[in-house]
Design a binder for these strands. Structure first.
Lengths: 191, 191
DNA sequence: ATTAGCACTTAATGTAGATTAAGAAAGTTA
DNA sequence: TAACTTTCTTAATCTACATTAAGTGCTAAT
């Protein structure tokens, strides 16, 4: 059972030959917790697909504060889209949070696959569309909802992550300080 | 000169026959200012490309406050991606701000074109990727920058819009009230 | 066992930006 | 031209969240 093929099969169906070609273009590796897969300031060469474990992307602003863009656990893709697409140095760090097995797809192989298997261009188009919609919603939520409401939405959307992710990182994802998050959480429990 | 073909030509090159097929699938219409192209609660049937004029997408939250997601002037695409992709009722309104000429591409025609002209699937994939990157950056900016810094970025990124868009809408886009925006602007001018 | 490091909590104080309200300016329609 | 609507400004007050700082408890390395 190859998780990434299941992931693709949910959107497009590949022939056996296409599956084999695809598998020949990817590489699967184990990583320890705290490994940095990609550093800000460097050019991103791969898309990452998480087979197991937990990964996050984040940036660090001038005041040395981290802001989490994205968490990815089993079955999710993650990367620095800006750097990958532009092949310029990006602002994101990508870090393994829990010991993980990760599929690497290089930019060159990805582009090659678009030519060899047009269905994969469709697959990534749809994947990107879904990601865009999620980002639009998160953006609007950040403009119009309170921190409590954003946390509620986070809990509903990513129930499994709440147990696994340190709470300071959830605070960062929803856009508040760990101190305020702690206070807010205890306030919410009282209700 | 057809603006939308130039727009496509920047990313993929179509043959004359493909251009003609594409043109046969779109519809161009004039709209007056204040026309609502798409209402929240309805299912979005079209992608919109702006030939001339100015359009915005926004939502309205429980407190009857508008939040601008996106402005689109000449050469930009706009739509309710969530509703268009899911074919479910969306949360966005799409409104013409300045008398406009707009290209309509129906969802069915768009999907048909993906089959007939795979290069267009590539075109929209790349368009969506670029949009995603822009949304990721805006999201991170909202998490880590002050209102002044967000306004500075807006000015640099969309210099032509500053003259054309009512300032209360810019305030909404960067995520502050019109009152605070007014105060902030005069404070910034003093420097 | 001891220390060091990190996640979390609590509390005092500070501030960016919201809210409310009122008036001035500017655009729109009759 | 006036009458109406909408945008913008100013100012007082309020609050959600940040900052700073100190302390608690857990894990993990020495």
């Amino acid at each position: 059972m190859v998780l990434i093929l299941d992931n693709i099969a949910k959107i497009v169906s590949l022939t056996e030959a296409e599956k084999e070609l695809f598998l020949s273009k990817i590489e699967t590796q184990p990583f320890k917790a705290k490994t940095i897969l990609h550093n800000a300031g460097e050019i991103c060469k791969h898309s990452y697909f998480v087979n197991s474990g937990l990964v996050r992307s984040f940036n660090i602003n001038d005041n040395i504060v981290e802001h989490v863009l994205h968490f990815a656990c089993e079955g999710w893709w993650i990367g620095d889209m800006y750097s990958l697409l532009s092949q310029k140095p990006g602002n994101l760090f990508i870090e393994v949070m829990e010991e993980a097995e990760i599929v690497l797809l290089s930019k060159e192989n990805q582009e090659q696959l678009y030519f060899d298997i047009p269905k994969l261009e469709r697959f990534f188009r749809i994947l990107t569309e879904n990601s865009l919609v999620a980002h639009q919603e998160r953006l609007m939520d950040n403009l119009s909802l309170s921190a409590e409401e954003r946390f509620d939405k986070f809990c509903k959307r990513y129930p499994t992550l709440i147990q696994r992710v340190p709470q300071k990182q959830i605070a960062s994802y929803i856009g508040v300080t760990p101190e305020f998050f702690s206070k807010m959480k205890s306030r919410m429990l009282k209700k």
